[in-house]
Amino acid sequence: MTEEAAPAPGIPVLTDAEIRKIGELLYRWTGMVFGENKRFFIERRVAERIKQTRVASTGAYIVMLGSHMEERAALINAFTINETYFYREEHQLAALSQDILPDIVRTKRPGDLVRIWSLPCSTGEEPYSIAIWLLENWPLVDAYNVEIVGSDIDTDALARAENGYFAARSLARMPERVKDAYFEAEKGHRRRIIQDIRESVQFVAANVVDPANMARMGLFDVILCRNLLIYFDDAARLTAAGHIYDALNPGGYLCLGHSESMARITDRFTLVRLPDAIVYRRP
């Protein structure tokens, strides 16, 4: 069924005003745009939250969102998209180990802190991929204090990331040797990433359009923000880009998704063409 199709039985039909209100709230909280063209998507997810909270109507549910922070987080979780897998856009991981980090550490001494941020990290595949890739491909990984942080607005996804269990689909692109080295044996069609790798990644909730939240994260040498800004409108993209810029150390690098372009959003970043990827840098 398409998003424009009629709701299934049991799914309430939201009024145009309710659709607009839910969209306005989600935009304010997350920067993501949900409008009339996403009606079926909105109605399905709001119906599930109404069922879980047992409120009497959509109007009552909207009122609830004004004061219940836990339910607000649950609604946001229901609307996030967690499409990811290990070694996604592998060319950027190659650029990280071959070009970006060697440039970053030119101004550091052995033992210095190198901070890498995966934002959004979804269920953890990206930050864990970074940890594994660097162990496999960056000879200087043990010479520096590498801190990898994974963040997402979806708290359910973060909990799954911390648990570290992954199905075969998430692991399909990883070489068998790498899977055997960094994952426990399969149980119930899932494998768990080994404890050493789980402990090498810190997971923290973060909202790229919230200035106070972003400021608390500190400064990073590399930020991967892939396939998030495509869900924003121009104003939210500009806000997010400003917060990402402020979260980078001078000279720090930003990696976007292959279909994204920071040049279309702001001129504050410098485009850098590497052998394996096009990335952006804070001057």
Results as ranks from 00 to 15, higher is better:
Arg106Gln: 11
Arg106Pro: 00
Thr107Asp: 02
Thr107Cys: 05
Lys108Thr: 08
Arg109Glu: 05
Arg109Val: 12
Gly111His: 06
Leu113Asp: 01
Leu113His: 08
Leu113Met: 09
Leu113Cys: 05
Val114Thr: 10
Arg115Lys: 14
Arg115Leu: 03
Ile116Leu: 13
Ile116Thr: 11
Trp117Cys: 05
Ser118Val: 10
Ser118Asp: 02
Ser118Gln: 04
Ser118Glu: 04
Leu119Gly: 00
Leu119Met: 13
Leu119Ile: 15
Leu119Val: 14
Pro120Ala: 13
Pro120Leu: 09
Pro120Thr: 12
Cys121Asn: 04
Ser122Glu: 08
Thr123His: 08
Thr123Leu: 05
Thr123Trp: 02
Thr123Val: 15
Gly124Gln: 09
Glu125Asp: 12
Glu125Ser: 12
Pro127Leu: 13
Pro127Cys: 10
Pro127Asn: 12
Tyr128Gly: 04
Ser129Cys: 11
Ser129Thr: 15
Ile130Pro: 02
Ala131Glu: 07
Ile132Val: 15
Trp133Phe: 15
Leu134Cys: 04
Leu134Tyr: 10
Leu134Met: 13
Leu135Val: 07
Glu136Lys: 14
Asn137Arg: 12
Asn137Ser: 08
Trp138Glu: 02
Trp138Lys: 09
Pro139Gln: 11
Pro139Ile: 10
Pro139Asn: 06
Val141Cys: 05
Asp142Leu: 09
Asp142Arg: 15
Asp142Ser: 12
Ala143Arg: 15
Ala143Thr: 14
Tyr144Gly: 01
Tyr144His: 03
Tyr144Leu: 05
Tyr144Gln: 04
Tyr144Pro: 01
Asn145Thr: 13
Asn145Ser: 11
Val146Pro: 00
Val146Lys: 06
Glu147Pro: 00
Glu147Ser: 07
Ile148Tyr: 04
Ile148Asp: 01
Val149Asp: 00
Gly150Lys: 11
Gly150His: 09
